[in-house]
Design a protein around this nucleic acid. Structure first.
Length: 803
RNA sequence: GCCGGGGUGGCGAAAUGGGCAAACGCAGCGGACUUAAAAUCCGCCGUCCCGCAAGGGGCUUGUGGGUUCGAUUCCCACCCCCGGCACCA
């Protein structure tokens, strides 16, 4: 049999599908809308790589299956083309992003089309299109008008290489997520979105949304809820007090010093004249250290000369400045308990501060400590709380402080507000006018979009300003409130603002006077299934939940959670390394489109392992998928040449079993085992002299989601009506899908000695009788009496003899 | 360090409300077809031992324990790999 001509067939159906609009969703009229969403890509490199193809194929199979279930599937695609990733690529190529990005997009589109997806190409979105970012700006303004966006001075993460500030979520282990340069800190006026207003809801909704537990855990950890005590110690000789947070109230009698973060406002106020120079020097040095330095270097600090009083025992404790205390967590100050905290222990050792044991490990008296004891135990040297357990003492201490009004229970979070200003060129301009008299003013909505101008010199400046700041035609404007000359905000938005709402736009891309149409949002959202990479567990997935909640509270949408069902696909690696342009290990799908065709590539990628796990890419096994696709072709060609045969009951049963298995596996994204079942069935079909019409129909339908081109061609060749992709998924008969005869293992003392064929559903007496009739069983029993018999129907029999 | 996920043949992997480990595929070996090759088809294919053979027996899911008639699956301890967080008080 000849090899099928994948190039001709794929080109033919691509054209036909485009012409017929088979994948165009009926946005207004769909009876059973199903929003099948994939994370839109950054079109930053020269094209799709094999990892993108892997991800999108899995989403598409899901969409095709849902369509064959009778749903009106909407599967849109777009480009997240603003941002540092795209701009850096433009810088490297030395081509202006306004020229380069449209080329990249065209290339991505072509490669996606060759993949044979059921994407609705009539509703593309690109975040760099003014028709799109006009509404990103609108989203920003709604947040601004409700006080959820504000410009304020704060210590921020600065990447010296990218020359911009970054959100916390974009700092990985103290380094820039894009270029791995150690982050420094700057004190700058920046725009923040108040995601922390939503902390509790972001946390609470995780309890019911249908997401993988692993992703929920990552979000919970990122939000970092922590319960404890907040209290204050009065500062000696000053009208001030020092507020701190602790999760260990039981150790409070062990406080031997206090420590402030170098950036803490009280540092200046409490430092004595004698210590002023030393403290100033230390604070100055600390400001130059990167987060990476801070951790790598030995713990350090300096005494301020001031003292605070522990109100519980009246002890006087020195106040230090130490850079292991973070200004960004809790109150930026700590009570230090060297005996029961590793960091405080090291610090006390270094500076000769007292180490006072107050929690004794249970059943042992505390002696000299060689390291901090961080566990729980029984309180000692703690006044009235002596003898209590850590847990009881914590409660008692907090209650006492609450009674006295000097402290109380408090919940603290790790999550901080989302910093969205970027001192770069390639992004959505922040739609704000800065007026010297009126302050930051929203650009009136009828003046949107604030267009990003073409600026020849788009390189980052390295100052605290975006390159737009020097482009006067953009900067000069008038205040919308007072009409006086004013300047535009020149920072641009973090790309994650673009992607925080894009899914709301897809159904309304043809509407220009509002971001999204209410009726369409009601019809299509929340998204039915969202599938994307784990790398966005915090970042995109958290930000878009926040923005959706905010829009919900403003009354724009009637749901809080944008993606009630989310599934994460695995990541493809190459020889153990992440696939990326910078590593130079890009695998281009075009080579496989040419050599084997998209159907084979899709099938191969989905067959070689679990979709939700990913794995190491290697094309070693692609021949297996190619043979399977070719076998489907050959089977159907043979069927066309020979008269249709009958359908013996065994063949019918194996068909029903396959329909059941494939139909159960696809919704769970177990594509590898679905394909295995199809391979098994085709191996059976091949042994039959001729196929029944129903078998051919069913085969093409079951293979269709995986290999859309060849099945469509064969469907037409065999006179199928309409498109195979618009046909209804075949039903199976549960009775026929069952096995008639089952192999049952016969064990003696847990060791398999024989396997006998029994009718499915055979009861214990008959099964045991059959098993005892086996020569092998008799031989192994060797006359020993059976003490016990265990029977698991249709599975096994275990004869247990006495010892 | 803490939090996730994982470790199964030569390779990619199946199978966990405990029940025949290795489905499906790759590679390999043997055979059919062919002048020959490719393609295709048929058979073998975890490992060790006994046997000329038919066949029989032992071992085997990272390591060591435990529970159980029975453990890849459950429990305890540990090792390694991948991902996330990271001086979070």
């Amino acid at each position: 049999m000849d090899r099928y001509d994948h190039k001709a067939i794929e080109a033919k159906w691509r054209a036909r599908w485009a012409a017929s609009g088979i994948y165009t969703a009926d946005i207004a009229g769909a009876a059973q809308p199903f929003y099948n969403l994939m994370m839109f890509p950054y079109p930053s490199a020269e094209g799709l790589h094999i990892g993108n193809v892997f991800a999108f194929t899995g989403v598409d199979i899901h969409g095709r299956y849902q369509a064959m279930q009778g749903n009106d599937v909407f599967e849109p695609f777009g480009y997240d083309a603003f941002g540092i990733h795209s701009e850096n690529f433009a810088l490297k190529q030395n081509i202006h992003p306004m020229t380069l990005i449209p080329d990249n997009i065209a290339r991505f589109r072509e490669q996606m089309q060759r993949l044979g997806t059921r994407i609705d190409w009539s509703r593309e979105v690109s975040t760099t299109d003014p028709k799109f970012y006009r509404w990103t700006q609108w989203v920003f303004l709604q947040l601004f008008k409700r006080g959820l966006a504000e410009k304020r001075g704060a210590p921020v993460n600065w990447c010296p290489s990218c020359k911009t500030v970054l959100a916390d979520e974009q700092v990985i282990a103290g380094k820039c997520e894009r270029c791995e340069t150690p982050i420094t800190h700057r004190e700058l006026e920046q725009w923040f979105l108040k995601i922390t207003n939503y902390t509790e809801r972001l946390l609470a909704n995780l309890d019911w949304i249908d997401w993988p537990d692993a992703i929920k855990t990552v979000q919970r950890n990122w939000i970092g809820r922590s319960e404890g005590l907040e209290m204050t110690f009065p500062i000696e000789g000053a009208d001030k007090s020092l507020t701190f947070f602790t999760t260990r109230p039981d150790t409070i009698f062990g406080v031997t010093y206090m420590a402030l973060a170098p950036e803490h406002p009280l540092v200046r106020e409490v430092t004595t004249d004698a210590q002023r120079d030393a403290v100033a020097r230390y604070v100055e040095e600390a400001s130059h250290k990167t987060a990476v330095d801070r951790q790598a270097m030995e713990r350090s600090g300096v005494f301020t000369g001031a003292y605070a009083t522990n109100p519980l025992n009246g002890e006087r404790v020195p106040i230090w400045v130490a850079d292991y205390v973070l200004i960004t967590y809790g109150t930026g100050a700590i009570m230090a308990v060297p005996a029961h905290d590793e960091r405080d222990f090291d610090f006390a050792r270094k500076y000769g501060l007292p180490i006072k044991l107050v929690v004794a490990p249970d059943g042992r008296a505390g002696g000299e400590l060689s390291e901090a004891y961080t566990g729980e135990g029984t309180l000692v040297s703690s006044g009235e709380f002596d003898g209590m357990t850590s847990a009881a003492a914590s409660d008692a201490i907090v209650e006492k402080l609450e009674r006295e009004g000097s402290g109380g229970r408090k919940v603290t979070y790790r999550l901080r507000d989302w910093l969205i200003s970027r001192q770069r060129y390639w992004g959505t301009p922040i739609p704000i006018v800065l007026c010297e008299t009126c302050g930051p003013q929203a650009v009136p909505e009828d003046q949107l979009p604030v267009e990003l101008p073409y600026v020849e010199e788009f390189r980052p400046t390295g100052t605290d300003q975006s390159p737009l700041a020097t482009y006067e035609p953009f900067v000069k404007t008038t205040c919308p409130k007072c009409g006086e000359p004013a300047r535009r905000e020149t920072d641009v938005c973090d790309t994650f603002l673009d992607s925080s709402w894009y899914f709301l736009r897809y159904p309304s891309t043809d509407i220009d006077d509002r971001p999204f149409d209410d009726a369409r949002v009601k019809k299509w959202l929340p998204v039915d299934t969202y599938i994307g990479g784990k790398e966005h567990s915090v970042l995109h997935l958290l930000y878009s939940r926040f923005v959706t909640m905010a829009l919900h509270d403003m009354g724009y949408v009637d749901f809080e959670e944008p993606y009630e069902k989310f599934r994460a696909h695995g990541v493809l690696v190459l020889e153990g390394a992440k696939i990326s342009k910078s590593r130079g290990n890009i695998v281009n799908p075009d080579d496989y489109y040419e050599s084997h065709g998209a159907d084979t590539l899709r099938t191969y990628l989905m067959f070689s392992g679990r979709y939700e796990e990913g794995g190491d890419f290697s094309d070693k096994n692609i021949e297996g998928a190619a043979r399977f696709i070719q076998r489907v072709w050959d089977l159907v060609q043979r069927h066309r040449e020979r008269p249709a045969g009958d359908l013996p009951v065994d063949a019918e049963r194996s068909m029903h079993r396959t329909i059941k298995k494939v139909g159960e596996d696809i919704p769970e994204l177990k594509y590898n085992t679905a394909i295995a079942a199809l391979m098994e069935w085709t191996n059976h079909l091949q042994k039959r002299p001729s196929l029944d019409e129903q078998e051919v129909r069913t085969l093409l339908q079951l293979v269709a989601p995986f290999a859309p081109y060849i099945t469509e061609e064969l469907w037409e060749q065999t006179g199928g009506s309409g498109s195979v992709h618009a046909s209804r998924w075949p039903a199976y008969d549960p009775e026929l899908a069952k096995l008639e005869q089952v192999p049952v293992a016969v064990q003696i003392n847990g060791k398999v000695r024989d396997v006998i064929e029994l009718d499915a559903g055979t009861g214990e007496p008959a099964a045991v009788a059959a098993a005892r009739a086996s020569e092998k069983v008799t031989r192994h029993l060797d006359g020993k009496p059976i003490a016990r018999t265990i029977y698991v129907q249709d599975r096994l029999i275990n004869f247990v003899t006495g010892r």
